[in-house]
Design a binder for these strands. Structure first.
Length: 887
RNA sequence: GCUUGGGUGGCGGAAUAGGUAGACGCACAGGACUUAAAAUCCUGUGUCCCUUGUGGACGUGCGGGUUCGAUUCCCGCCCUAAGCACCA
């Protein structure tokens, strides 16, 4: 056994041993409490980045801790291996996406193993394998049966030159990212999952998980679902020649509003350019109106960039609609700020009480009529807001109604309730709840995804593939051009099939599923990863699920985490699971960032070794210039990325510092939720710490073998050490229980420093010294294991002589002895009028009376109190004394 | 604009049922060891002031408030990050 710490050597040794012993393979054991620790599965890009390392280090620390606590831990990993990059590689380099993906998985698996993460590799899954995506298809068919999957026409971004659909990002600025052609909107038929059917439940379920999820994530989901309660009101269209002639019925426009109380202030009805009433009456509009409507329509179809303010625009169609409350005749306008996708695609315009309507009214000179007055006014004024005491131009708060017929003098709250009830009673409206969330479109015109198991038959129409014929497998390859429809459509062997119903020749659906489908249920599959006939056995899943702790980036706060909650509710309705929420606790870890250097001269990012950086003695950058020509370089702290040349390769780090040190630093440098600035210098501290522990253990190793079970309390040094040990155990246990991963490292360092201060030579140590040191060392090693498992195993072996590894020997996390942890003397502050003036050493649990006596007798305190009247003395036992004086 | 976080030394960060602010680490400075360097170990390190002390004042974004006592609670601002955004 080597006396020097060589990370590479011991890390390989223990990684091999864990694998041979199947140490981390989880087996159902009903006698033990289970713990499911889960990290978001990676996309196999081929290289691990520091964000992964941080994510998995957190998860592994937790898994180790829970394992040492005696839990039956499930800690799996897999691959989110469908998706665009593989297809891009195929287009650019001509490689087969499957080979590319498998190669990447192999490389990244090795990288993960070099970090010594305690995964159960026997449960590894990959989304691109037929045995996995078979059940994506299975779920799709089940949802079809439940009416939760359906097909509808929808607008997509379309590049007419490349003949392909584009995502919003690819259509940024209204042009195709590849060829720069003007992007069009095109209607194509796509498959949707009815997530809206669960909107209310997804909202309600948040109460259940509130305690374990970061508030910002829940808020983001709430905003995304976007529930808004209001009312629909029907306005009869007066001058419409349409329905009146054809069916004898009067055409109506249904508007949605959250402020029905302001309806007497409406001066117009504004509809989206694609609203049915416009299409129905288009023929009777003047040419000017027609042109304007077409203009607004095409403007709305153009993808807009983030943050872009669009000026209000619109046109009076000449149609008239009747306000059912006031019987007033209002003009019907087309407005560019009204969208068909939200609410009913029509609004009533109330400029006095809505900022957007005001903007619109101002532009077109429409009347602004105030109908709500601030409730704080004792007397409602005339309604002429310019002379009103609360003369803001618009007023969007709740208040009291004025100029509203019989509803005047009611409060907004009363009026909203009663007016929508009134509308319902009289058949021209009803209370309505609207959601922002739309159904989940899962069709992708791509090759590298799970084929949607549907067949189109000339006679039978759209026919689902039979469950027995799953999986619908992807062909070996396809022509990858990046243009045209889905590559699958160009593979005749795939496309041509037979109708499952009538057995006549038919064609397959060539779209594949959104990869968020794969990640919606992957962690259910981990519980039963080799099941051939079902996604998982409900009984097995019932043991392991729900997930106790999920760890991943905030970037998935909405999409993935909402989809998987939806999927769980569907699985519950299918009888596969019996809970509503799959994830009890969610930890969203911060990004890993580092310094990047941008050169204006080179118009791009440059490598760090191309830059000269001067720092002052405090480390602040004084100047940063390009080495080649001394031109200035901008320094920014940004997310690590290849294109910014500021990434750090985890493999290099592991090679230089060892996996244990990298993991300690990743956890110690910042709280898990914070951004982590990766600085090479910081990691030295982790290495130094490990080496100190290592040296100490080897210095004491032989002496410790003689440790007896005797703990003699008369030895002061030993007693102090034991006290520190138990205080540390207590602290670290509390930290882990509250999911703090940075502070335990500090506590371990303190304990290690205490050992360093223990100045007894091992050869001269008394029995109680040896006992105390052994206790401290064993505790230290056990508590270090979640951070630095390799070093811990090695040192554990050195101390105990047990060569199987601490897991195999069933090591347990140390338990703090409260009595030993108690300090035998405490230093408490004495304040005069809240200012610290002196300190005094006391025995714990010293009585209030004694404390007061000690405080008032203190020489320094007397100095401050002499000649003054002591008003009172505040005593917090074991904390402080505060003497309050006057004069 | 709306929503939600967050502002503590040169830096990452500790500490809040209100009770010694700055644990631990980095960086820096001085010292020991060494022919020398590395490594290691020791000491110091919030700011300012003085009579250099078991000294004083100030100090947790800013301004108020509550309290014997506020980084922590309340009110009003400022800055910053993220998400959403013509959502009716």
């Amino acid at each position: 056994m080597d006396e020097k710490y060589f990370a590479q050597k011991i890390e390989q040794k223990w990684q091999r041993r864990w694998a041979e012993n199947k140490t981390f393979e989880a087996v159902i054991d009903a006698s033990k409490e289970k713990f499911y620790a889960l990290e978001m599965l990676p996309y196999p890009s081929g290289r691990l980045h520091m964000g992964h390392v941080r994510n998995y280090s957190i998860g592994d620390a937790l898994a180790w801790y829970k394992r040492l606590q005696g839990f039956n831990v499930l800690h799996p990993i897999g691959w989110d291996s469908f998706g665009q990059p593989a297809e891009q590689a195929a287009i650019k380099k001509g490689v087969n996406p499957r080979d590319w993906t498998e190669d990447n998985i192999k490389q990244m698996r090795e990288q993960l193993q070099r970090l010594g993460l305690s995964y159960d590799w026997s449960r590894e899954i990959a989304a691109h394998r037929p045995e996995y995506y078979k059940f994506d298809q299975w779920f799709f068919l089940k949802m079809l049966e439940l009416g939760l999957a359906y097909k509808k026409m929808t607008k997509v971004n379309w590049c007419p030159k490349d003949q392909t659909t584009l995502s919003n990002e690819q259509a940024s600025g209204g042009v195709c990212w590849r060829c720069g052609t003007q992007v069009e909107k095109k209607d194509i038929a796509q498959w949707f999952l009815r997530i809206t059917a669960y909107a209310e439940e997804l909202l309600d379920g948040m109460n259940e998980i509130e305690a374990g999820w970061a508030e910002r994530v829940l808020t983001m989901q709430k905003n995304w679902i976007g529930k808004s309660e209001g009312a629909t009101v029907e306005f009869k269209v007066q001058s419409s020649k349409f329905k009146a002639e054809e069916s004898g019925r009067v055409e109506t426009i249904r508007i949605f509003t959250t402020r029905i109380d302001t309806i007497y202030g409406a001066n117009a009805v504004v509809v989206a350019p694609v609203h049915p009433v416009i299409e129905n009456n288009f023929a009777q509009f003047s040419d000017d109106v027609k042109t304007k409507i077409a203009e607004i329509k095409s403007q709305q179809e153009k993808p807009t960039d983030y943050g872009e303010e669009v000026e209000k625009d619109g046109v009076d169609t000449g149609l008239k609609a009747i306000n059912p409350f006031s019987a007033e005749e209002l003009p019907v306008w087309v407005g560019n700020y009204v969208m068909m996708e939200y609410g009913t695609g029509a609004v009533m315009s109330v400029p006095a009480h809505d900022e957007r309507d005001l903007e619109f009214a101002k532009k077109f000179g429409l009347e602004v009529r105030r109908v709500i007055e601030s409730a704080e006014l004792t007397e409602p004024d005339s309604g002429d807001f310019k002379n009103s005491t609360n003369s803001r131009e618009w007023f969007t708060d709740y208040g009291v109604l004025i100029n509203s017929g019989e509803w005047s003098h009611q409060t907004s709250e009363e009026a909203m309730r009663e007016m929508s009830e009134f509308a319902e009673k009289n058949n021209f409206g009803e209370p309505t709840v609207t959601y922002r969330i739309r159904d989940w479109g899962i069709s992708r015109q791509r090759f590298w995804g799970a084929p949607i198991p549907i067949v189109y038959c000339a006679d039978c129409g759209t026919v689902p593939v039979s469950f027995d014929d799953l999986p619908v497998e992807l062909p070996e390859s396809a022509p990858f051009t990046g243009v045209g429809e889905s590559p699958l459509a160009k593979v005749p062997e795939f496309v041509n099939t037979f109708c499952p119903k009538c057995k006549q020749p038919a064609k397959r659906e060539t779209d594949t599923m959104d990869t968020f489908v794969d990640s919606s249920w992957y962690y259910f599959r981990y519980t039963d990863p080799h099941n051939k006939s079902a996604p998982f056995e409900p009984e097995i899943a019932a043991y392991w699920l729900p997930v106790e702790q999920y760890i991943g980036g905030v970037d998935h706060a909405v999409m993935h985490l909402l989809y998987t909650r939806f999927w769980t509710k569907v699985m519950r309705d299918l009888g596969l699971v019996d809970f509503d929420e799959p994830i009890r606790k969610l930890l969203t870890q911060g990004m890993v960032v580092s310094e990047s250097y941008y050169s204006d001269r080179r118009a791009g990012y440059v490598y760090s070794d191309e830059v000269n950086i001067e720092r002052d003695e405090r480390g602040k950058i004084v100047s940063a210039t390009l080495k080649t020509d001394d031109s200035p370089v901008k320094v920014a702290v940004e997310k690590m990325s290849k294109s910014k040349f500021n990434g750090v390769d985890p493999d290099d780090m592991v090679l230089i510092y060892g996996a244990d040190a990298v993991r300690i630093f990743a956890l110690f440098a910042a709280p898990a939720e914070n951004e982590l600035v990766w600085l090479e210098t910081g990691i030295d501290g982790a290495v130094r710490f490990l080496q100190r522990v290592w040296r100490f253990v080897y210095r004491w190793k032989d002496a410790l073998k003689t440790a007896s079970a005797c703990a003699d309390a008369s030895n002061d040094g030993a007693r102090k050490l034991r006290q520190k040990t138990h205080q540390t155990i207590k602290r670290i246990t509390e930290n882990f229980e509250s999911y703090q991963f940075n502070t335990p490292v500090a506590a371990l360092m303190e304990l290690s420093n205490a050992l360093g201060d223990f100045k007894v030579e091992p050869e001269k140590a008394s029995e109680s010294d040896v006992f105390a040191v052994r206790e401290a060392v064993e505790s230290l090693i056990l508590m270090l294991a979640p951070y630095a498992p390799h070093v811990s195993e090695e040192l554990w072996q050195a101390v105990t002589g047990n060569t199987d590894g601490m897991l195999a020997s069933g090591a347990k996390f140390p338990v703090a002895d409260e009595d030993l942890a108690k300090a035998d003397e405490i230093e408490i502050p004495i304040q005069v009028n809240g200012k610290l003036r002196s300190r005094v050493l006391i025995a714990p649990e010293t009585s209030k009376e004694d404390l007061e006596k000690m405080a008032l007798a203190d020489a320094k305190i007397c100095e401050y109190t002499s000649g003054k009247e002591i008003v009172k003395v505040i005593i917090v036992p074991n904390r402080l004394v505060n003497v309050v004086v006057k004069g």
